[in-house]
């Protein structure tokens, strides 16, 4: 079983397949840099919210959610480092703003 995994949820049509592959590679590289996990051991899945099915603040959403799970947990300093790097990488690759991104890293 992998120690770290990610599930990324985005609004339909927002991020194309080649960009998803780049984002997945970015998540795996950051996980290796911060937590020492081999990229091959970090599964990344993507799922789409169909248009008209996602809302934020009562309005149609443009937000992507990156949910990380860490078996055994990490310290808060490490968690924040991980989340911040993911934010930076995601914005750079996808072109989204910081307000269009939610990142979590939960202990399991």
């Amino acid at each position: 079983m992998s120690r770290v995994s990610f599930n990324c949820t985005m609004q339909e049509g927002q991020i194309d397949e080649p960009t998803r592959a780049t984002l997945a590679a970015g998540l795996q590289q950051i996980t290796q840099d911060v937590l020492g996990e081999s990229p091959d051991d970090v599964p990344v899945t993507f799922s789409d919210i169909p248009s008209g099915f996602g809302f934020r603040g009562g309005e149609p959403s443009t937000t992507s959610l990156v949910r990380g799970s860490i078996v055994g947990g990490v310290t808060q300093d490490v968690r924040e480092d991980l989340m911040r790097r993911i934010c930076d990488m995601w914005m750079e690759i996808s072109g989204c703003t910081v307000d269009d991104l939610v990142v979590s890293a939960r202990d399991v």
Partner: peptide
Amino acid sequence: RAAVAKAFTDIHCGNTGAPRSFVHVV
């Protein structure tokens, strides 16, 4: 769906004081 999303946002913010932009409904 849009009406539920708006109602949930109103209710959550009314109960907790959170900013509206933090309420996600899917």
